[in-house]
Design a protein around this nucleic acid. Structure first.
Length: 176
DNA sequence: AGGTCATCTCACC
DNA sequence: GGTGAGATGACCT
């Protein structure tokens, strides 16, 4: 179960956050608490870029190697990267991530080498607060020793880590 | 200023 | 295999 949070400002759609839920019920509770309005199925055509985003995600889910980050640029959807990642360091981390292909895996250490930093933990800290999982494919970053690392802020046993493992598994399976 | 980390390495066992 | 200490540095409060 997945949800998008977006807002429209000056005719530009800004994608604030993409979020996974363990169960549908949790998503419903979350949406109610935040008092978000859902797009009605029949109105979806009015939000062509949201629909296109959904199509992209579906395409990814069906096994295609789509670069979500690149493709979203063509949809008049602003990911707000500059606002979400304000320091040069964090922007370097992100820009080194978004070009990973489906099924490709890197490590916190490798990213460090590429951006000329040994602050591996700090890299984890940036990814820990990634509001755009999948789009910024932080699930493809694991530890150098092969351990799974964290996902969606979690670092111990949790459904989030199972989800990360599962995502990688699926990407391997659908990438022969 | 001090605390928090989604890490890494190395030294043990 | 496993654990623990230490180095580490960007970020948050």
């Amino acid at each position: 179960m997945i949800s998008f949070e977006y807002r429209i400002k000056d005719k530009v759609t800004i994608l604030d956050e993409i979020r996974f839920f363990e169960k549908e019920a949790n998503a419903i509770t979350f949406i109610q608490e935040k008092k978000y309005e859902l797009i009605k199925e029949k109105d979806l055509t009015k939000y062509s870029n949201i629909q296109a985003l959904q199509n992209l995600i579906s395409s990814y889910s069906s096994g295609k190697n789509v670069n979500l980050y690149d493709n979203i640029k063509d949809l008049n959807i602003d990911l707000g990267i500059k606002e979400k990642f304000q320091t040069e360091f964090s922007q370097n981390v992100i820009s080194n991530l978004v070009n990973l292909d489906r099924g490709e895996i890197t490590t916190y250490s490798e990213i460090g080498n590429r951006i000329d930093s040994t602050a591996y933990r700090a890299i984890g800290n940036i990814l820990r607060r990634n509001p755009l999982p999948l789009i910024i494919p932080c699930h493809r970053v694991i530890k150098k020793n092969g351990d799974i690392g964290g996902f969606m802020g979690e670092s111990d046993r949790s459904w989030q880590l199972n989800l990360k493992r599962r995502l990688l598994e699926i990407e391997q399976l659908t990438n022969p």
